[in-house]
Design a binder for these strands. Structure first.
Lengths: 274, 274
DNA sequence: AAGTGGTCTAGACCACTTG
DNA sequence: AAGTGGTCTAGACCACTTT
């Protein structure tokens, strides 16, 4: 039952803090379940557990952290809400895998526009066909360096992809990755990946994208963008700048997407429902 | 302690269902806390409690629904996560108020673009100045009728607003509301509202907007849109179609926003952080 | 002091998965 | 049968607000 990968500092998470805590590590007044959550985050970030290997059981974690199961569950609940962990009854608790389902619901927001008279079955989310248009090494420009928190001129991978829905090219993606973070990445490995790009980051590089922020705007398509999207140069397109982050809000990927919104929308839900 | 507004059907939420439940109301296998959640939703939707009047206390609700406090809290937790309720320690649990803070974080996603060299203090969220450009009655067109689930030609209010940040007009909003839902709404009441538009819906009409879905695209500014946004006709603008919903996913408001993205972005967060 | 929500515990039992 | 997560309970105590 003892797992040697569990080493961060055995013993209670909280030293019964009746203001006896000698090291004001900032956890003074934090509720116990928040401290447990932080401990769990540290365990997860260490990288010993992937989507294939479950964390220690809740009862094991609770006893090792010297808290009740209820408190441990409270902490796990929050990480599940944040899509960091997933629970599977009977099997265990896992780092959330980057499968297609997650990609679609969390990171892909382009949907075919419903024509008024179109009575098709609610346009089930469609997974795009992805083709790589270019893979190269380059130096980070100012904006990329700032976003990725690297130095101007640091080496980066630059990867262009086109995404199609029902055979029509709808999105042009330009990814920028720090070569320091993705050592040994090659075009072959990128193109021959088994699943999504983020699944590749996770399984091959141990980097789990947790969330992202996007800033969108309308712009006029440049000649090359227009060509890929089958639009006249200068046509209005949506330009979405995404920064994907992992643990500790560390930047992983900077991506600019150009979207042909002639027949598709960029969809955003303001607070999901039950 | 007994509240006469609590009348939905005293007694246990669940009849100890050992498959003795005579009326298969669809709650058969639902966990108890989900049934409690539904009961709470019904209580809230009845409209007896507003942002100013707290719900009965957790212990009161628990005993009236004949569940433990822990189960009651589990149900409330979910409604708090969905921004339906807010808890205030020492005071009570309230229907989530539509104040400016909520508006900014949930429904207003336009932010000034950070210039590379701009080192201002992280561009705190700015609340826009809003001016009404037009208020009229009209008949719903096909798209509006479908969105609002009313009949084609049904009477609607049509309200145009321009939103400015730092004195620059950045957004043109065109709201469409069913007159049946907003009886007695007048331009005067609309313009002289104390807070946000959604706060007006909530306090004056008992309609609480819970969530919304937006579909965005790039388009070329029409002459009138361009004029309001100080752009040349045909310039690329973002066009955002929003449908705002209340309890039971009932549509409340259909809104089209035109955004000048020369110096501002439409911001979207893919999974919030802790 | 009394009432509210917030945290934490300990334990029982259920549902699902695996050997 | 044993191990995992999922639900539910009952009760203690803490923190905050109001009277």
């Amino acid at each position: 039952m003892y797992d040697p990968t569990l080493r961060w500092s055995n013993g209670p998470v909280k030293t019964k803090s009746k203001s006896e805590s000698k090291t004001p590590s900032g956890d003074e007044s934090l509720p116990l379940y928040r401290q447990v959550k932080k401990a769990l985050q540290k365990i997860i970030e260490a990288g010993h557990y992937g989507p294939g290997k479950p964390l220690p059981s809740e009862s094991a974690l609770a006893s090792q952290l010297q808290v009740s199961v209820g408190t441990l569950r409270h902490a796990v609940d929050e990480l599940v809400h944040e899509h960091v962990l997933v629970r599977r009854q009977g099997k265990g608790t896992f780092v959330a895998p980057h499968n297609r389902a997650r990609f679609m619901f969390q990171f892909f927001h382009v949907e075919r526009r419903q024509d008024p008279e179109d009575n098709e079955p609610t346009s089930e989310q469609e997974f795009p066909d992805i083709a790589c248009l270019g893979f190269s090494r380059d130096k980070a420009d100012a904006g990329e360096a700032r976003a990725l928190r690297i130095k101007l001129g640091d080496p980066v991978f630059r990867i262009d992809n086109k995404l199609s829905l029902r055979g029509k090219v709808v999105v042009l993606d330009r990814l920028v990755l720090s070569t320091a973070m993705f050592r040994n990445l090659t075009e072959k490995r990128f193109v021959e990946r088994a699943s999504t790009v983020y699944a590749l980051y996770q399984t091959d590089f141990g980097i789990t994208v947790l969330r992202a922020q996007e800033r969108a705007r309308a712009s006029a398509a440049s000649k090359v963008v227009a060509a890929v999207l089958s639009l006249p140069a200068g046509a209005p397109v949506m330009e979405v700048h995404r920064l994907a982050l992992t643990f500790g809000d560390k930047p992983v990927e900077y991506r600019v997407s150009f979207i042909n919104t002639q027949a598709h929308d960029y969809v955003s839900v303001l607070s999901k429902k039950a």
